[in-house]
Structures are given as C-alpha cells and as structure tokens.
C-alpha cells in the first residue's frame, strides 16, 4: 500500500507520515535477519502473498493469520553454507529462491514445501563464483559466474517442482556483469551493468549480446535495478553505491538514464539524491519507486520519475534499519 499512498509531489521535502507501519513479524529464534522477501503461495485453492525471512542458517515462510498478524508456517534449515540473499521470482508460486555463500554467491537453491504432505525439499540450481543473479517472469533465473579464464552468463528455466527445465547460454561481455535487470514490457530483453560501467542488452531467446553502451565516468560502479522500453528508448534505473557527495548535486541514490539502443548514446533523465548529510545505500526498486537503507539506520523512499525523496522511515526503538525490499506487486515495503 505504500506506493499507492505516496503523495505525487512533496515540495516541502520528505514527509514521515507517508510510511505507515502495517504489521510486525517477530522471530523468537534471535537469529539476525539477512534478507526479507515475499512470495506468492497457493494452498487449498487459495493464492496469497506470504513473507519470507532469511537468517544465515534458516529461511522461514510466514502467512497472514489475521489483519496485522503473521505466523511462521515452515522453516528450512541450511546449515552448511550461509544464506546471503533471497532472489525474488516475479509471478512464481510456491517457490523460494535463495543465494548461499561466504563473500560471494557460491550456490543458488530452490526451497519447496507442501502443507498437504508437510514435506519439504531443496534443489540446487547453480554453483560457481556467481557475481550477479536475477529472477525473471515465467520462472526464469539469469546468473553470471566467473572462473579465472572466462565468464559464463546463463538463463535457467525452472519447473514448478523445483527442477531446471532448460538452460540457455547468453553471450558474455568482456567485463564482469555486476547486476541484471528485467526490461518491463519486453519478455525477451534483459539488461545488465558491467564492472567497466557499461549497460549491456541481451536477447534472451537467442542468447545474443545485442549492444554495449557506456554509462559515463561520472559515477563508478553503477548497478542496474530496472529497465523500461518506451518509444524506441530504453530507460534504465541505476544506483550508485560508491558515488561521493558533491556540492552541486549532492549524493546520487538513483538515476534514470535513457539509452538509445539504435545508436548506443545515452542521456540522464532524472536524478534522485540522498537527503542532505546522509550516506550509504542498499537499494531496491519496484516500478517507479526506489527504496534504500542509509548508514544512519533510516530507510528512504523516492519517486524516481520525479526525483523526489517521498518518505523517510527513521530508526525505531528496536534499532537501526539494515535492509529494505519492496513486496511483490508493490504491496508494501519490507524493512528489517
């Protein structure tokens, strides 16, 4: 509901009341949360949005019991390698995807659970030195992995039972791919950012690398979050985790950059700044809303089309916010 409730323009600056705490999930296991996500879940003919929380050694599925009240349905225990990230799979039902590893992702696993038989299983989708991964519509997962000699970029089609139906190799660029983003409205297009600050475009059906376009030197290590194709242009939402504050522009949290794939040229469209004096960001984008955790322990939310910080969620009595993710379909903002 958060995205729906955001006022269109806030000329006077951020307004805290535009984020409202809807409900709290309290985990009695005392383990530190590393990520949070949502998943569509179908049981007994009823499809609902459930919350998934991850600690280093366990992933828990929560269901809504009553308004503002959530109960833990099931916990998968993953004791060998720590969980470091959850990978949302848009429009996928009854499948939880997690990345495990130490500093880098070493494994991607699918977690399944049946309430009818009270049975669960894991299935291994990918191993290697995985640099970037994204879940796409239609149960597809794209990842880039690297050995000393070469980079592999691969799309895996997942079956409903947690297996891998099909694998399609994508042509790797020379530079390491650091992030992927689906292109809204174009099922067969995928964009990625590289360690050399380029945006690359693939054809997922053929595996072709269609275009490499330079982002510019202004902000190093740009990360793509989302892309939209419109009127022959590709609009890419980038975040800039390493950008320093400047007097003229402040610190960029997100930028929307328009690329012309036909010519490879680009132009900045919108610039979303961190609130003055703030630093640090771990960002997530849904539709045209960006959210990021700041080093102060606050969560900031931006309207990316207007370049406005629309809301700030300050640290609460329980402590500083450490992670923020949009729920599937923009149903809310999850913060941990």
């Amino acid at each position: 509901d958060v995205a729906e409730q955001l006022p269109p323009v806030l000329p006077e600056g951020p307004r805290e009341e535009s984020l409202q705490l809807v409900s709290e999930l309290k985990d009695s296991s005392c383990s530190c949360a590393v990520d949070v996500s949502t998943v569509w879940w179908e049981a007994a003919g009823c499809r609902e949005l459930r919350v998934v929380t991850a600690s280093e050694s366990a992933v828990s599925l929560w269901e809504p019991l009553a308004p503002d009240c959530w109960g833990k349905v099931y916990t998968w225990h993953l004791r060998e390698i720590p969980v470091i990230q959850m990978i949302p799979l848009p429009d996928t039902c009854n499948l939880v995807c997690v990345a495990l590893g130490e500093l880098e992702i070493g494994e991607i696993r699918l977690l399944l659970y049946s309430s009818e038989t009270d049975s669960s299983k894991h299935s291994l989708v990918k191993t290697g030195n995985i640099k970037a991964v994204v879940g796409l519509k239609d149960q597809r997962l794209v990842s880039s992995s690297r050995t000393m000699q070469e980079q592999q970029v691969e799309m895996v089609s997942l079956s409903e039972t947690g297996g891998s139906k099909d694998r399609q190799a994508l042509m790797p660029p020379e530079e390491t791919v650091t992030a992927f983003a689906e292109v809204e409205g174009m099922r067969e297009a995928l964009v990625g950012t590289t360690a050399g600050n380029s945006v690359v475009v693939w054809n997922l059906k053929t595996g072709q690398l269609l275009r490499k376009m330079h982002v510019g030197y202004s902000y190093p290590a740009s990360i793509c979050h989302r892309a939209y194709s419109d009127s022959g242009l590709l609009f890419v939402v980038l975040s800039h985790p390493l950008a320093k504050e400047s007097e003229s522009c402040g610190s960029p949290a997100f930028r929307v950059v328009a690329f012309n794939p036909h010519t490879g040229r680009s132009a900045g469209v919108m610039f979303s700044c961190l609130p003055p004096g703030c630093a640090g960001r771990q960002g997530d984008v849904w539709d045209t809303a960006g959210a990021a955790v700041l080093t102060s322990g606050a969560v900031a939310v931006w309207d990316l089309l207007r370049g406005r910080c629309a809301a700030v969620l300050h640290p609460g009595p329980a402590g500083h916010w450490a992670l923020a993710r949009w729920a599937a379909g923009g149903a809310g903002l999850l913060a941990g």
Partner: peptide, 23 residues
C-alpha cells in the same frame, strides 16, 4: 531527451539489433 542528444530513434531496435548481432 532530444533526438540531437541520442541520435535517430528506431522503434524496432530490438529486432534490428537481433538481426545484426552475431548469433
């Protein structure tokens, strides 16, 4: 963004680049 910044725009860029790019 103006066309002078970005160059000529093609609405069919995805199909055109797919036809030109190495398989």
């Amino acid at each position: 963004c103006s066309e002078s910044d970005l160059g000529p725009i093609s609405l069919n860029w995805f199909e055109e680049l797919s036809a030109e790019a190495p398989p």
